[in-house]
Design a protein around this nucleic acid. Structure first.
Length: 412
RNA sequence: GGGAGGAUUCCCGAGUGGCUAAAGGGGGCAGACUGUAAAUCUGUUGUCGACGACUUCGGUGGUUCGAAUCCACCUCCUCCCA
């Protein structure tokens, strides 16, 4: 099917999503007619999706806009096993309750990018068909079709051979393969998409469908979101860049994109926004200081996709207030202090720690010693300084840590 | 089941009785330079009532004036053989 007259396969290719395809011509041909059912799995191993998943959601959305039908699989069953792909260590074992909870959060976040109304996209939990499997029956029915010799040569397992791989995780590929077979049978799903680290798991499913049902299925993987020098994108001090506003505020999310490396801007615009390619090319051509314009657009667009336009505008306003000059805003992170306490004198270090600006008072001392803190625009030099009522003109004091981190303290 | 090796501060990784809050690198934070970028340079990176004190080197107990370093037991991991 087509978007603006362009075949969706070509859209994905042009925007740079595609890493590997089992049979490019066959997949392109399959997608030429609308209504193709395809699936992507998401293992709920955390209580929020992150930017890595965002890329998968973008692809789903592109495909849906082109008239195809996505199935989002919440990996409640597979998360019980744990995907060894791309992991050096075994994951922490999650309880089923955690997994179910996480799946619920995933569901909400996905609904922002993919339209699940009226069966336009489906969502299912693979726990529904995996958790109740009978061990022996499953081994005979499915396990018999997998060659251990071949599985061991799969990249995801080979990497783990030196660090140890448990039998539990070794079964992951079989679980995911079974998912594909199940969806093939239940929904006629013949196409599985996923991150490039899922390649061997996807191939496993395609083989299984052929062996069990003689059916033909396809797979396509997408480039992982990496920086120019190959590192995973979306890492912050606090871990991943989450899609949940409780874990990563829209402002923080916006700033992440506002600050991406010049070299990554073009990539992000293509992969993480729906801007037309003409516009993307125009922005990507900017040089030098003008790259900032492209970053502003990028930050706004991605934030709007994930948190909505209102939140994106708000984040933008906030950024302009802080970096544009004033350096104060009603919406910046705020800590509230009791007026009476301040009247007695409150240690600045205690406030810094309470506000989460520093993880310990020692860190606060270092920060001040190195001239990294300002109070109402004035550098702080005395680590033992206390906050007085006089520091709160109009009821608020403004702290700035380094160049970019702003915090407001108000009296009540 | 038998044998060998290992567990160090956010990560990797030195350290094998006092000179060790613990080398070096990575990462983080801050300063300079800048474009809210990168690169580069500099400082810093256990905690606290801070020129001092306290707590860290898988866990527990012991030897010693003194242990991350020695001993015993335990837990976990890796490798070789079965």
């Amino acid at each position: 099917m087509f978007t603006n007259g362009t075949h969706v396969y070509d859209v994905l290719a042009e925007r740079g999503y595609i890493a590997q395809v089992t049979d490019a011509d066959a997949v392109r041909d399959l997608l030429s007619r609308p209504g193709v059912t395809f699936y992507i799995g998401f293992d709920p191993t955390a209580d929020s999706l992150h930017v890595g998943h965002l890329l998968q959601l973008m692809v789903m959305a592109h495909m849906q806009r082109a008239g195809h039908r996505p199935i989002a699989i919440l990996g409640v069953g597979t998360a019980m096993v744990g995907d060894p792909s791309g992991k050096c260590d075994m994951r922490r074992m999650l309880t089923q309750a955690d997994i179910e909870y996480n799946a619920g959060r995933f569901r909400k976040q996905m609904e922002r990018l993919v339209d699940f109304r009226d069966g336009r996209a489906l969502m299912a939990s693979n726990g529904d068909w995996l958790l109740g499997l009978n061990y022996i029956a499953f081994l005979r029915d499915i396990g018999a079709h997998f060659s251990v010799n071949r599985m061991l040569t799969a990249d995801c397992y080979r990497q783990r051979m030196e660090h140890g791989l448990t039998f539990l995780e070794f079964n992951y590929m079989i679980m995911q393969s079974y998912d594909f077979l199940h969806l093939y049978r239940a929904y006629g799903c013949r196409l599985q998409l996923g991150g490039d680290d899922q390649w061997s798991n996807i191939l496993g499913g395609i083989d299984l469908i052929r062996r069990k049902d003689g059916g033909e299925a396809y797979g396509m993987t997408f480039r992982l979101l990496t920086t120019g020098d190959g590192r995973k994108m979306g890492k912050t001090e606090r871990g991943a860049l989450w899609l949940d506003p409780e874990r990563t505020s829209p402002y923080e999310f916006h700033q992440y994109w506002r600050n991406v490396d010049d070299a990554d801007v073009a990539n992000c615009l293509r992969l993480l926004t729906f801007l037309p390619m003409d516009r993307v090319r125009e922005l990507s051509a900017l040089q030098g200081e003008a790259v900032n314009e492209a970053k502003k657009v990028l930050a706004y667009e991605v934030t709007a996709l994930v948190h909505g336009e209102e939140a994106a505008r708000e984040a933008e306003r906030q950024a302009e207030a802080l970096f544009g000059g004033a350096g104060r805003s009603e919406t910046m992170p705020t800590t509230v202090l009791e007026r009476t306490k301040v009247a007695e004198g409150v240690g600045l270090l205690d406030v810094l720690a309470a506000a989460g600006l520093v993880s310990s008072k020692s860190e606060g001392r270092r920060l001040i010693a190195q001239g990294g803190l300002t109070l109402n625009g004035e550098p702080v030099t005395d680590p033992n300084r206390t906050l007085e009522i006089g520091d709160f003109p109009e009821g608020a004091a403004y702290l700035r840590k380094g160049k970019k981190i702003h915090h407001r303290v108000v009296l009540e």
